[in-house]
Simulated assay, not measured.
Amino acid sequence: MEVADSLVKITEKYLTRRRVKQYIRKERSKRRHFIIDWLDAFLWAAGVVLLLNQYLIQAYQIPSPSMEKTLIVGDRIFVNKLVYGPELLPGIAKLPSPIKPKRGDIIIFENPQYISQGPIFDVLQRIIYMLTLSMVDIDKNPDGTPKHHFLIKRAAAADGDTIKNIDGYIYFKPEGESEWLDETTYRTRLDQKNKTQRLIKDENYNTIRLGSHAIALNNSGATLTSDESSAYSQIQTDRDYFDLYSIQFYANKSELALNRTSKIDFATYYKDINGQFVPHGWILPLGDNRDNSKDGRSFGIISKKEVLGQAMIKYWPLNRFGLIK
């Protein structure tokens, strides 16, 4: 009986102490201001959002028309951050993944031409961007437009491909082959269903070639004919004639014909003539809207290790909701 009585007393003492602690906790909770409760709930939710955005799914807003009609300006999308291995922290080393980006994937990566304001700002900007589901972006240009810190493009070529741009059309030469394939044939071989968009008509390239030649003449101090002057004006002011990559190529070609000692960018020029080789483990990203996209034709190839995620779903506006292909 003495043992039983001792157990009862110990149990009662424990339960009494437990009830007292619960009572004190409850009273403290009553006295705590509602703002503190709200802040606790917000911080907890923010932590969950940050973890989800950093390691699983992240929200982005499309800032430019470079991927039309697949993605249009203002589309809000979710990106799969886990598939290729998430970053440990924003801008810091990535975890490995057995899945690698492949041709046809719509990928997100850091803009190779982006100028950082420092690691602290970068981390703060990405945290705010993630917490607000892409609603608030503090990384802006002087005119108030968001900087293109991250780019979303399609992985067009990879792993031994050679790629060439001729009058806005892309041609591919897969590794080990000698013939160039037009893009339609190449995508059919890979069973890709996506379509690209062209804004410039084929017949406009006579004006583009003449206007580009006029650029070289103008640089040499020569007097332009009326046709050359008109074409020169058109390729710089009329969107229907503005193919940045072709203008650069034809201007360099004319410059070299006029002056063999010209200081043109020979690396870019011969890449345009012979094609750009994409080594294994690397990707050449291109926009689906070929005549309005600053992409790998400008900044070059990127390593697969630099790919941060794969575009997965459009969630806003609702009439654009759907999987991204």
Rank of each mutant, 00 (worst) to 15 (best):
Q125G: 15
R154P: 00
I127P: 07
I115T: 12
G322E: 04
S303R: 13
R19M: 06
I264Q: 03
I166P: 01
I235V: 07
D40A: 13
V8Y: 08
I120G: 06
I170S: 05
Y169A: 11
D243S: 06
L95E: 03
A41K: 14
Q310C: 08
R260Y: 15
A93T: 09
L217V: 03
Y60L: 00
N53E: 10
S262F: 05
I115S: 14
I302R: 00
A216T: 10
L323N: 06
N80Q: 02
V3K: 15
I106Q: 03
K140H: 09
P86G: 05
G275C: 08
A222L: 11
V49G: 01
S226K: 15
F109C: 02
I106F: 14
K173S: 03
D238W: 04
I115Y: 13
E306K: 12
G168S: 09
F266K: 13
G275M: 10
Q234A: 13
Q125F: 15
F249I: 03
K21S: 08
K201N: 07
G296P: 00
W316N: 01
D122L: 05
V3D: 13
N218G: 02
T184S: 14
K263M: 11
T223Q: 13
Y269C: 09
Y232M: 03
Y186V: 01
R32Y: 10
I115L: 14
Y84P: 00
A41E: 11
G275R: 04
F34I: 07
K153E: 04
G300P: 01
A4K: 09
R17S: 08
P112W: 04
I273C: 12
I324R: 01
D167I: 00
A222Q: 12
K195H: 12
I302A: 01
K201E: 09
N274A: 09
I127Q: 14
V73C: 04
L39F: 10
Q197E: 15
Y129D: 05
R297H: 11
D105A: 08
K13L: 12
P119A: 11
M1I: 05
N141Q: 13
Q192G: 10
L50C: 10
L284A: 03
K21Q: 06
G91W: 06
L199D: 12
S262G: 07
A45F: 07
K173R: 13
L244V: 05
Y250V: 01
G275Y: 06
K294W: 09
N165P: 01
L244I: 07
L88Y: 11
S6T: 06
L39D: 05
S230K: 11
S303L: 07
S178I: 12
P112S: 08
E183N: 11
V278K: 02
R297K: 10
D227C: 06
I170H: 08
